[in-house]
């Protein structure tokens, strides 16, 4: 497959399965950039940057230093009512988080290596709304740490929680990260986007297909 031309620059071809993630040439950084929206995952072995903006959502940046293949996800667990317990978390709410983590890890390991090779960095989970009845960000953080703990995968760096949204830049083939905490002027857009995502997975769950042979 050939690359994709944009602004006279050739973006490297995306890996199979990640064609739907929006990419562009970042002039300032002079690099092909994938812009990750809530619910998306992107994996690359090219000289690329993955950019996302996190409110209460969480992103895991994972890379295998042996293959230089890495990627990022961006997810949030669905919001639940006051009756939400660990039981419902196991039963349904965790499935998007489990999926986002598993897809990212599997795609990286498809190019070789095992879970113990992985270098993991975690970001996001801010308490960006004062009037939140529950701290959604904290729930997302707790989930991702618990997931990695159960898998026996170490976290080498993290910047989570607090009250700020974050702009995250990740370079999957080197593992470098740049995080910037955003001021409140940007918060409305981020909160709106995350609320739309939450509503979307609530009203039209992104369940996989079932095929009987």
């Amino acid at each position: 497959m050939t690359g994709v031309a944009q602004n006279n620059r050739i973006l490297p071809p995306p890996m199979a399965g990640f064609e739907s993630v929006k990419r562009y040439w970042d002039n300032a950084m002079a690099i092909s950039t994938a812009k990750l929206m809530p619910g998306e995952v992107y994996v690359s072995g090219e000289d690329e940057m993955i950019m996302t903006v996190l409110g209460s959502c969480v992103s895991a940046c994972i890379r295998n230093p042996r293959t230089n293949i890495g990627g990022m996800n961006h997810f949030m667990l669905p919001q639940m009512g006051a009756s939400a317990s660990m039981l419902t978390l196991d039963g349904t709410a965790a499935r998007y988080g489990n999926w986002a983590m598993e897809v990212l890890i599997n795609e990286i390991l498809n190019y070789g290596g095992s879970k113990r090779d992985l270098e993991v960095k975690l970001f996001g989970g801010g308490k960006v709304l004062d009037n939140m009845t529950m701290d959604i960000g904290k729930r997302n953080i707790d989930f991702v740490f618990s997931f990695l703990d159960k898998e026996g995968i170490n976290v080498v760096a993290h910047d989570v929680g607090d009250r700020f949204p974050r702009k995250l830049l990740y370079f999957p083939n080197t593992g470098k990260v740049r995080v910037r905490k955003l001021q409140s002027t940007n918060q409305a857009t981020i909160v709106r986007r995350e609320a739309a995502y939450l509503n979307d997975i609530k009203t039209s769950p992104r369940d996989g297909d079932i095929d009987l042979f």
Partner: peptide, 22 residues
């Protein structure tokens, strides 16, 4: 020789219905 292919994230009710069916 698999009987079926269920893609994650799975809907618990649909998974259970499929198991019942097979």
């Amino acid at each position: 020789g698999a009987t079926g292919w269920v893609v994650k994230p799975f809907n618990p009710d649909k998974l259970l219905a499929t198991i019942k069916k097979v």
